[in-house]
Amino acid sequence: MGFKLLSKLLVYLTASIMAIASPLAFSVDSSGEYPTVSEIPVGEVRLYQIADGVWSHIATQSFDGAVYPSNGLIVRDGDELLLIDTAWGAKNTAALLAEIEKQIGLPVTRAVSTHFHDDRVGGVDVLRAAGVATYASPSTRRLAEVEGNEIPTHSLEGLSSSGDAVRFGPVELFYPGAAHSTDNLIVYVPSASVLYGGCAIYELSRTSAGNVADADLAEWPTSIERIQQHYPEAQFVIPGHGLPGGLDLLKHTTNVVKAHTNRSVVE
């Protein structure tokens, strides 16, 4: 069995187990497998329904001669939608809004960016022009300005110390501490036991640490421990890039980060 097929099978099995364990909360999309990078042309966006009122959005972007996937989250909030992270750029984010209108038909009224990198804030200006209120932590807003990236308009308070959590509509926002970046936030959907790890969490097929220019490698494993301790009931975990899975993604990420750190020390 090929690795790609095995990865998709694991996603399907995880979703099936969740649907059985929580039949009222989960209505997993039966329309197909989780979209992969090879299936999404740059400039297009796919939506994948995880649970009743919960979707991931998947886009792709060219970077350094390669094409990478990027995940975000959409959560229903009454007759409105909360968006977590842009679709990595203005063109993708405009396509995301169009796809949401086509498939869901509810307005996106608020959006949260989970850290300051372009795959999370690139497209904020498109959201703002569409009347979406954009939010991020003060740290993310400051770092985005320093980096020359787009800056969300509103500040999220109460997320300055490791372990801080605040309720934001249908989700809980959690600051686990520094990891992929010093400002990275985690998003949890309690009604569906869905954990969105953003770039602080890796997919299972990833074996290298990737972009760690703004990471705190020493603190990252401790931050992941905080996530595990705060959300032990999480059933569906979405990484910032690639295929979702279960809580095993947290341990896998820790292993990859520690291996990278150990290699760096040896070198």
Rank of each mutant, 00 (worst) to 15 (best):
S16E: 11
T86F: 02
E203V: 09
S62M: 02
V28F: 12
G131D: 02
K91S: 11
G197Q: 02
S155V: 14
L217F: 01
E267Y: 04
I104S: 08
A15H: 02
I227P: 01
L106E: 08
E147M: 10
L10I: 06
G32H: 04
Y175D: 07
G72Y: 01
S137G: 10
S139E: 03
Y231S: 10
S38L: 07
Y48W: 03
Q103S: 13
V256K: 11
F116T: 02
S113C: 01
A19K: 00
P190M: 12
P176V: 10
S223Y: 02
E145Q: 03
S22T: 15
P239L: 06
I186Y: 07
K102F: 15
N92Y: 01
P221H: 14
G53Q: 11
A259C: 04
G148F: 13
K8Y: 15
A129R: 05
S70K: 04
H241I: 01
Q235R: 13
S181H: 01
Y202Q: 14
L243K: 04
L24W: 13
S27L: 04
T140F: 03
I151C: 14
H57Y: 01
T109M: 05
H154C: 03
T182P: 03
P69N: 05
S70T: 04
T36F: 02
D214R: 12
E233H: 10
A213T: 10
P244N: 03
D29K: 06
S30F: 02
W220N: 02
H117K: 00
L82M: 14
E44V: 09
A21T: 02
Q229S: 02
R120Y: 14
F26D: 06
E33S: 07
E99V: 06
A130K: 01
E157L: 11
I227E: 03
P107S: 08
G72F: 00
L83M: 08
R76V: 07
G53Y: 03
V146D: 03
H115Q: 00
P239S: 10
I186E: 05
A87C: 15
S162T: 10
R142I: 02
Y231L: 06
S205I: 03
I74A: 05
T182D: 12
S7I: 08
S162P: 06
G177P: 01
I50R: 10
A213R: 12
A136E: 10
L97K: 01
D79P: 04
R120K: 15
I104V: 13
L6M: 10
H154P: 02
V265P: 02
V237A: 07
V189W: 11
G65V: 06
W88S: 06
G169V: 10
D183T: 00
L243I: 14
I100D: 00
A15W: 02
A111N: 06
K258D: 12
G65N: 03
V166R: 09
H57V: 07
L247W: 05
P41Y: 09
P35M: 09
S62Q: 04
D164A: 10
S191M: 05
T222G: 09
L250H: 04
N184H: 03
Y175A: 09
E99L: 11
V108C: 00
D248N: 01
L159F: 07
A87H: 00
D216Q: 13
A144I: 15
P35E: 08
A136L: 13
T207F: 12
D216S: 08
P138E: 15
N149F: 10
G158Y: 01
F236L: 02
L243E: 04
N262Y: 05
G242H: 15
S56I: 01
Y48D: 07
L73A: 04
G240Q: 03
E157C: 06
V166M: 07
S7R: 06
G123W: 02
Q49D: 07
I58P: 01
A144Y: 02
T254H: 09
N92K: 10
V171A: 04
D118T: 12
R263Q: 09
L249S: 12
K91P: 11
S7P: 01
S22M: 08
R226T: 00
S56Y: 02
I227K: 01
G169P: 09
E99A: 10
S27H: 02
S113A: 12
N184C: 12
P152M: 15
P221S: 11
L204H: 09
L159K: 03
T60P: 02
S139I: 02
S181A: 09
V45D: 04
I74N: 02
L81C: 06
A66V: 05
S193N: 13
G242Y: 10
F63G: 11
I74S: 06
T207C: 11
N92T: 14
Q235D: 07
A90C: 08
G43V: 04
G158T: 11
S113R: 00
L185C: 05
K8E: 07
A15K: 09
S223M: 09
T153N: 00
Y231G: 10
S70N: 04
I50T: 07
P221L: 12
Y48T: 05
Y231A: 08
I238Y: 05
S191A: 05
R206I: 11
E172D: 10
D118M: 01
L195T: 09
A59Y: 07
S181N: 09
I151M: 05
H180W: 01
T109C: 09
P69S: 02
T114C: 00
T140Q: 01
V11G: 07
E267A: 09
A15E: 12
G197T: 10
R76H: 08
G163F: 02
S139P: 15
P221F: 14
T261W: 06
A94R: 13
T14G: 09
A209S: 13
N71P: 01
A218Y: 10
V45L: 06
D85L: 00
L10M: 15
T140D: 02
D164F: 09
L13H: 03
K258F: 13
A130M: 15
A192E: 13
E150T: 01
M18Q: 05
G245F: 12
M1T: 02
S22Q: 05
G198C: 03
L143T: 09
F168E: 07
A165C: 10
L159R: 08
G32D: 05
K258M: 13
H241N: 02
D214S: 08
R110N: 09
E39L: 10
N184K: 01
L204V: 10
A87P: 06
D64Q: 08
G43D: 09
I17C: 05
I224W: 07
D64W: 04
S113W: 01
V75R: 05
P23T: 14
A136G: 10
Q229Y: 03
D118I: 15
S56C: 08
L13C: 05
F168T: 06
K8F: 15
E147S: 02
V121S: 13
A130T: 04
V212N: 11
G65A: 04
F116P: 00
Q228F: 15
E147D: 04
V189K: 08
A133W: 03
S62C: 13
E157S: 12
I151K: 15
T182Q: 12
A179C: 15
P138L: 06
S208N: 02
I186V: 10
E44P: 03
V265F: 03
T153Y: 15
A192V: 07
I40Q: 05
S264W: 15
V67M: 10
V121K: 06
A19F: 11
H230C: 13
R120Q: 06
V266S: 07
L24M: 05
L73Q: 04
G169Y: 09
S161N: 14
V212G: 10
L249G: 07
R76E: 05
A111Q: 14
V166K: 06
E219Y: 01
Y175K: 08
Y175L: 10
P138N: 15
R46T: 13
R110F: 00
D118C: 08
D216F: 11
S155C: 15
W220A: 10
Y196G: 09
H252V: 06
N262T: 11
G158I: 15
V171Y: 02
I224F: 10
A90I: 11
D52I: 02
L106P: 03
G169E: 08
E267T: 15
G158K: 10
F168P: 02
I74L: 05
L204A: 13
V212M: 10
R46P: 12
T254W: 12
A133S: 02
G2A: 02
L81W: 01
I104K: 00
L250K: 00
H57P: 01
G43F: 02
T207A: 07
V189Q: 10
W88P: 00
W88K: 00
Y68G: 06
S31C: 11
G2Y: 03
V67P: 10
R226C: 14
Q235N: 13
G158W: 10
A129F: 09
T253P: 01
G78K: 15
K8D: 15
V257M: 15
D29V: 08
V42K: 10
L127W: 14
A179K: 06
V132K: 10
E99K: 02
Y231P: 02
A90L: 06
D119E: 01
P23I: 11
L243W: 12
L81D: 00
T254S: 08
